[in-house]
């Protein structure tokens, strides 16, 4: 991989490309190459670069142009600005589904896509290549002398019994700004009432709100946070340096997000896009049932704990919480619980 040209450009350099908010941009391979696949993704460059580099190893003649943006920015870019990207990768299943449902994608069929199980594919437009559960990340230091809570109910109990220990040291997504946080929260609320009880308890302790999983993990690692709720386990597991944190996949239920890829309708290089998606699928679906990827938790976890995992289903029902009224209503309830102003 050393021979590859890896250039990380500043946001400003890429800015003339688009009006939506770009967080990061990187080009793998020679710039301005004739064969170039433009990827728009929510995953950070350093999280995703191993995948791209192995793709480059398989297809050295294809340059990968990788742009990072928030899921809502991606929505704006594809449905609003018709930005020219070949592949869109996002963890926001609801927004991805909306793009596919509203006709902003083009269908793609290949041996790899057709071999996907039904739950990992919606029409011929959306393809899942990871399964990433939401975890509770705990600081081992903060829980010294307490058993690690394995369920939400146990977490509620611990929080209620030790309000002083946890005050201002609990973090979760700010649903108003994080698409993935909103998706996890709505699915949690759909699955069980315990979500609202937990949110109430967390709100009473002055929960801190975050935009991203990695910030929460950082703060738990540094000891600033004792508990981070609904953090992507994959991000936490990929950080091998973290010995001070415990990652708990709740036993009552763990919501599993599927990271999906799609090809926008106006993709400039749909053939290369198909190549890229095929690579994502074949490299992650080594086991027929469990996608493996640098981003997904190890298959062993899924094999031993099948019952607790609840995959979010791809389908038009994901449009429900994107509806303005529904979203307002949900966020209102959430604000009442969390902010308790």
């Amino acid at each position: 991989m050393r021979h590859l040209v890896l250039s990380v450009c500043l946001m400003l350099l890429a800015a003339p490309l688009a009006a939506f908010d770009i967080e990061d941009h990187a080009v793998f391979g020679p710039e301005n190459a004739s064969r170039q696949v433009r990827v728009l993704s929510v995953a950070d460059v350093d999280v995703f670069s191993p995948v791209i580099e192995s793709f480059r190893a398989a297809h050295p003649d294809i340059t990968v142009d990788y742009t990072v943006a928030a899921s809502t920015a991606i929505m704006t870019a594809i449905s609003g600005e018709q930005a020219p990207f070949d592949v869109v990768i996002s963890s926001a299943m609801d927004l991805q589904t909306k793009l596919a449902n509203d006709g902003f994608t083009q269908s793609f069929r290949s041996t790899a896509t057709l071999s996907l199980p039904d739950w990992a594919r919606w029409r011929d437009d959306l393809f899942a290549f990871t399964q990433e559960p939401a975890a509770i990340v705990l600081s081992r230091a903060a829980f010294a002398g307490h058993p690690l809570p394995e369920t939400r109910q146990a977490l509620i109990t611990v929080l209620r019994q030790n309000p002083d220990l946890f005050r201002d040291r609990v973090g979760t997504y700010d649903l108003r700004s994080s698409g993935l946080g909103y998706l996890f929260a709505t699915q949690d609320a759909r699955t069980s009432e315990v979500y609202w009880r937990l949110t109430e308890v967390m709100g009473a302790l002055g929960t801190r709100l975050y935009c991203c999983s990695s910030d929460m993990i950082d703060d738990v690692a540094s000891g600033e946070l004792a508990i981070a709720y609904n953090v992507l386990a994959s991000y936490a597991l990929s950080r091998a340096d973290l010995t001070k944190v415990a990652i708990v996949l709740p036993e009552d239920f763990s919501t599993v997000m599927l990271r999906t890829a799609l090809i926008p309708r106006n993709a400039p290089a749909p053939v290369l896009a198909g190549r890229f998606i095929d690579f994502l699928l074949t490299s992650s679906w080594t086991d027929a049932d469990v996608p493996q990827s640098p981003l997904s938790v190890s298959s062993a976890v899924f094999l031993t704990n099948r019952d607790r995992f609840r995959r979010i289903r791809l389908g038009p029902e994901l449009l429900v919480y994107l509806d303005g009224y529904k979203r307002d209503r949900f966020l209102e309830a959430w604000k009442d619980a969390v902010l308790q102003e």
């Binding site: 029409r123 289903r313 389908g315 029902e317 009224y325």
Partner: peptide, 17 residues
Amino acid sequence: DLPYAAFSMLSSLGNER
């Protein structure tokens, strides 16, 4: 208040937009 179940019902017909 869009009912989630109504949309689940619609997706029971298959992957329809």
